[in-house]
Design a binder for these strands. Structure first.
Lengths: 106, 106
DNA sequence: ATATGATACATTGAAATACAAGGTATGTCA
DNA sequence: TGACATACCTTGTATTTCAATGTATCATAT
């Protein structure tokens, strides 16, 4: 379970957010902060590399839009991204079930 | 969520196993392999550093026992270890709930 | 007018985590 | 005798994440 297997749960969160609507980086961060009130926070240094990676994989496309003088970079989930979301979601379910299985023994 | 916060779930598994009975390293690995049939595997390079860390924290104590010529190193969960288990278990629950919260939105 | 804080992007260096690959040594069984 | 399971362990590397930092614009209050 090197890296990818055990984690990669952060990109799952990003993909999941984008499955509802196109979003820009800062919006993802503040949405999660609001939704997950102090459970954990998604940081810029984590998010932007993930977005770049997802884009290079073709899982998200991206376009800029000016809103009241500020340029926002919106990300959009592609068909490929939707498949990836489904995969990662299933991986997460398996992972969580596995941990809970062990915990239930004690 | 740097390292500790998001993961550290592996030590939770180890603590959980030890809460049922004293175990030796190889036994933990094979028990998990058997229990979690191909979901993931706990590897030596992961386990032994964790055991050393838990021991240095006083969460586990350790004794050797010879069984049919082979020396096994058993680990025992201390009171401190039980407290740590409770903490990590709660952390895991919060973490899993948080992820599921985001997933349910999509 | 200007300072402060929120919005919005991004990078860099360091720490934590996990594993692959390797090593040692003994018991068991064909 | 050789192969495989048991049992311990370490080293080097890849991955993931964050803290810290930087840039720039807008809104608001002073």
């Amino acid at each position: 379970m090197r890296g990818k297997q055990s984690l990669a749960h952060t990109s799952l969160l990003v993909l999941s957010l984008l499955s509802r609507q196109d979003m820009y980086g800062y919006q993802m961060i503040s949405t999660l902060e609001q939704k997950l009130d102090r459970t954990f926070a998604l940081k810029e240094g984590t998010l932007y590399p993930i977005l770049r990676e997802l884009e290079s994989q073709g899982a998200v496309s991206c376009y800029e839009q000016e809103v009241s003088g500020r340029v926002r970079k919106y990300y959009h989930l592609t068909r490929k991204g939707k498949r990836l979301l489904a995969e990662e979601r299933e991986q997460w379910d398996r992972y969580a079930r596995a941990i809970n299985t062990v915990l239930e023994l004690s």
